[in-house]
Write a protein that binds this DNA or RNA. Structure first.
Ligand SMILES: [Zn+2]
Length: 494
DNA sequence: AGCCTTTGACCAGCG
DNA sequence: TCGCTGGTCAAAGGC
């Protein structure tokens, strides 16, 4: 039925594509990890797309493939899977390209059970897994009945960072799963599921982001820069930053995270750059700390002088993939001569529970709603969020092959890690059931559930989308003695 | 033995 | 009715 040629990729990665064809969120189920592991370990050759087929990725459900067809109009064969759980009628269709990238997923039905592995916890966004293919291609996760047919942009690769800004952490992409509308009437939390569905989305990290606390002339525009990030703005009081997040349904499914550290000796400043994977020119740069040294004059000071954001050279020097529909260049994105370097590997030092501020951007976001993201005051001595890094990333991110570095703040819930860096966040399943500890699986490094702390958005407190343990301390109480903390929203120039 | 994938055949819907 | 298409079945084989 299916030409053998079309099946070749699937056969090559059958352990992954068949058992867990699209399960980017977890750990291996049954001990057939050889293929994926091999892929992960062997992709120095640039086989980056294969990372998406990590055997380690799993959504916690068991699927049995019951058919494969080459459908008309589709370049790649479509595989049909059923949930193997007794009486569970959930099916999904997966289309994979020849190199193993998932190009489309269609879910049908709702599970009437939890994941096969109780320990595997999935955030509402991740409950129905997102294809974990990469390569910047576009895939889609769809609900069978047409309730949600949302194209998502899959991960981007090859983000290079200019020498002035060395990636402090591993580049990661986050994925947002589109929870499909259920058609299973037995699924009592239909409403809840649907609610998740409606709100499932990652904030579009582009022009919809605006900084509330920025009153400068550009504060409300795309790429607005929060004051107080560094020495450029000494008078501002960046004890806490709030960002409103306007959400869009055309959300990027992934976010690329990069971490940098100022290379000046003893300078604690770090920055954290978020990019929407499908719009790499849209960046959110979060600064932590104050430079202890003179900040060199910027090459382009048209905007920074008033906003005090040390806009990273990385955001402007990164050779960006061509992406359609990118926002026009923003002049405030500029180069700085401040040097940043990757953080050293800190190992378990960073694997501590953190109780940082609120990241309320994710749990249940409705399109176009405004969210307040309250950023915690970062303290140099604070424990680091256990946002594990996959050391193996260095195999696929040539520009980011630094030692693993962990961010200094919690990661918003919908941001999972793509490729081999899969992170499963706590939350509820698509039946509205609260699920337990967060699990983060990052290229073989699993973090304990307690290593992550999230806070569900204020608006969604009662929706039980997050496990209680996701609560974090009220950072307002701890914001008094914080160094500068700034979040910069930017857009990369063409 | 059990579960899985593979794959040709079969079925249903549709024009 | 027929052909096309997408979806499913089920036998065969593998692990
Ligand atoms: Zn199921």
């Amino acid at each position: 039925m299916i030409p053998s040629a079309s099946c070749a990729p699937l056969q090559s990665y059958h352990a992954d594509s068949a058992v867990n064809p699209i399960t980017p969120l977890g750990e291996p189920t049954s001990g057939d990890d050889g293929v994926a592991q091999h892929l992960l370990e062997g992709n120095q050759k640039g086989a980056f797309p294969l990372m998406g087929i990590s055997k380690n990725a799993e959504d916690g459900y068991n699927w049995r493939k019951y058919g494969q067809k080459h459908v008309k109009g589709s370049e790649f064969p479509r595989s049909y899977y059923k949930c193997t759980y007794p009486d569970c009628l959930v099916k999904k269709k997966v289309e994979r390209s020849h190199d193993g990238q998932i190009t489309e997923i269609v879910y049908k039905g709702a599970h009437n059970h939890h994941t096969s592995r109780p320990s595997l916890l999935v955030s509402p966004f991740l409950q129905n897994e997102v294809p974990d293919s990469v390569d910047g291609g576009s895939s889609s996760v769809k609900a069978e009945d047409g309730a949600v047919w949302r194209s998502i942009q899959l991960g981007c690769k090859d983000i290079k960072v200019d020498a002035d800004w060395r990636v402090d952490g591993l580049e990661r992409t986050s994925s947002t799963s589109v929870v499909t509308k259920t058609s299973d009437p037995l699924s009592n939390p239909q409403e809840k599921t649907k609610g998740v569905l409606e709100s499932a989305g990652t904030p579009e990290l582009s022009s919809t982001l605006a900084s509330h606390d920025c009153d400068d002339e550009d504060g409300a525009t795309q790429g607005s820069i929060c004051p107080g990030g560094d020495a450029d703005d000494e008078e501002s009081e960046p004890k806490r930053r709030s960002l409103s997040l306007s959400l869009s349904l055309s959300v990027p499914a992934r976010t690329i995270w990069s971490y940098y550290k100022c290379t000046s000796a003893g300078c604690p400043v770090r920055k954290h750059v978020e990019r929407a994977a499908n719009n790499l020119k849209s960046v959110i740069t979060t600064y932590e700390g104050k430079h202890i040294h003179e900040v060199p004059a910027t090459k382009n000071s048209s905007q920074v002088n008033s906003t005090a954001g040390n806009l990273p050279a990385a955001t402007s020097n990164i050779p960006l993939p061509k992406i359609a529909n990118v926002p026009k260049p923003e002049p405030h994105v500029q180069d700085h001569t401040i040097h940043f370097e990757r953080k050293p590997a800190l190992g378990n030092e960073y694997m501590k529970p953190c109780l940082l501020g609120k990241f309320g951007s994710d749990a249940k976001l409705r399109p176009s709603s405004i969210y307040q993201m309250q950023f915690p005051p970062l303290q140099n001595s604070m424990p680091y969020a256990s946002f594990g890094m996959n050391i193996n990333h260095n195999e696929t991110h040539p520009a980011c092959y630094m030692a693993p570095v962990l961010p200094d703040f919690p990661i918003p819930v919908p941001m999972s890690i793509h490729g081999s860096s899969n992170m499963v966040l706590g939350g509820s399943d698509n039946h509205g059931n609260s699920i337990g500890p967060i699990r983060s699986f990052l290229g073989g490094q699993q973090l304990r559930g307690t290593d992550l702390r999230f806070v569900k958005p204020e608006l969604e407190q009662e929706n039980n989308l997050y496990d209680n343990r996701l609560h974090i301390s009220d950072h307002e109480n701890a914001s008094s003695s914080s160094p500068m903390f700034c979040r910069v929203v930017g857009s990369l120039p063409n």
